[in-house]
Design a protein around this nucleic acid. Sequence first.
DNA 1: TTGTAAGCGTTATCAT
DNA 2: ATGATAACGCTTACAA
Lengths: 339, 339
Amino acid sequence: MARTTPTIYQVARRAGVSIATVSRVQAGHRAVTPATRARVRQVIDELDYRPSRSARALAGQAHDATGIVFPDLSGPYYSEVILGYEERASEAGQSVFILGTHGRARSNEQALELADRVDGLVVMGRTVDDAVVERMQAAGIPVVMLARPPVAATDTVRAENEASARALTEHLLDHGHRSFAFLGDPEGSPDVSERYLGFCAALRAAGTGVPPRPVPCGFREAEGHRAAAALLDSGPPADAIVAANDEIAIGAVRAARERGLRVPEDIAITGWDDIALAEHVRPGLTTVRQPLRELGATAAALLTERIRGTRTEPRHVLLPTALVVRASCGPHPEQEERR
Amino acid sequence: MARTTPTIYQVARRAGVSIATVSRVQAGHRAVTPATRARVRQVIDELDYRPSRSARALAGQAHDATGIVFPDLSGPYYSEVILGYEERASEAGQSVFILGTHGRARSNEQALELADRVDGLVVMGRTVDDAVVERMQAAGIPVVMLARPPVAATDTVRAENEASARALTEHLLDHGHRSFAFLGDPEGSPDVSERYLGFCAALRAAGTGVPPRPVPCGFREAEGHRAAAALLDSGPPADAIVAANDEIAIGAVRAARERGLRVPEDIAITGWDDIALAEHVRPGLTTVRQPLRELGATAAALLTERIRGTRTEPRHVLLPTALVVRASCGPHPEQEERR
DNA sequence: TTGTAAGCGTTATCAT
DNA sequence: ATGATAACGCTTACAA
């Protein structure tokens, strides 16, 4: 694409100054006479000059851009997080790249490519290998990890999982449930891993025997449905299913119904995230709310501090979550919502 | 950020060739001896060399990036469209920028800035002024418009609105409804404008007097709730509300219920989009499904053709929509879903 | 087939 | 306060 927009040279010529002066004016340096500054400013406006991003980046300045890497764009979870991120980042004057890895093998490669176009980036969960992250940081680009446990000197942002999972499970125990199942893949995501830990902790503390092994399961409704169906058809009957997220739970509710089971009378089912659906689905889903937008926004904020050099000490932010009790966990005298 | 990663010079030196040769190998030019090609390749691997994006862009090549500009990230609609876009674009080897304008006044400026960092971009609805789009195109960067009626030589992608709106309204008429209201702002969005047109056409054809003026309303549930509340409290009673999207409709259902009205017995309410909630909400929402992912993916595909120069003739893609009849439009003998 | 060298549009370092 | 001018890392004629 031929450059049809004016360059710094044209501005300089027309204003009767050198390109250095234009650059200074443009950058807001003080060492410029008000008179010349005004003249240059006017020419800039007349020509509608705007400096080339590539040239600027090449000359060693910043990209004024950051990126966020996530596994997949589908479902409310990622959308909300990215929304929070984009909003905060663009307020801070940064353009934002998004990269969905979609489980591709090339994701490390793609992330590394992205790293070359930004001043810093956010990495969700286990989308890229730790070695890759280290290389990025070694190359001087700040990285913030999202939805992962704290790692050494890298900033991390996550929502509380274990304690809430424990509280959730205890709530189920209070309802009298004794035979549990966990739907989700602890291996696949740090979040799920922590939730499973909290789940187990509650069961152990209650002395309900050995906690069951998790039933591995992707994050989507269809996968939850399939896993729950298999579980219900084969295993010893569970009277409570703790799902790793709301979509899985909704799939599980469907599977239970298809088998003539009533929720929560015959089987209790809980979710995680508190997506919009959780409230509207029948029965209302007992779940754990996490501040999705805030997760993204916080990541953006931490990254900005790093880029600006405002802070050098690593920070590990843990955002609070809240148990949201609805109907799917068992019979309640009246509808309540605990926080 | 000092460049800590190897440059083309280091590769050249180590391979004992000139930088031009390295560049050729890297670009896959054929005019290189297999022997030297192999040697260079090996050094590239050894050093893990990857060319600087900025330098490449500056040297007149491409950015290998595109962008999408949308008004706001919230709600399933935008998320889905962006998902479809990102997936297709990144398959085509392009990094993707997202820019939410959030109704900011600076949106034109931001979009123009973005235009300098990409090889082409997609603009949704009326997020940026037409004059700005023209300037981008004049500057040689291809633009694809999303969710807008065809404009001259610019590629456009949209979903069918008017005919479906008409069919939807006719369905309501078939139910016997006669007093209608339309919730949404035709001024604010081309999509809504077309839906309102189809709505009016059906009413006129039915000879049901003058179609009502639209009740302006944002796209979110809270706004739908507020608008419906005002409508129900003040105006002459409507027995059918056509909402511009599902979220508005859900808000309207809530408002109706709060006033002791049963849906659909006392009042029918329809939505648009067929988001996940539409099926689960009570009563199931009669709505119009549009292929959200496909909208984004198609925009990406058109843009890629333009960038690659594969096509120069403008294309205007109109994706089909489908009436989805559920319970909220009126009593049905049995649950059915029409396509 | 390969190398030399001229840009690409900035920023930043010197002089002046 | 301002102006030359050397990077920045790459692509691409043009030579050899």
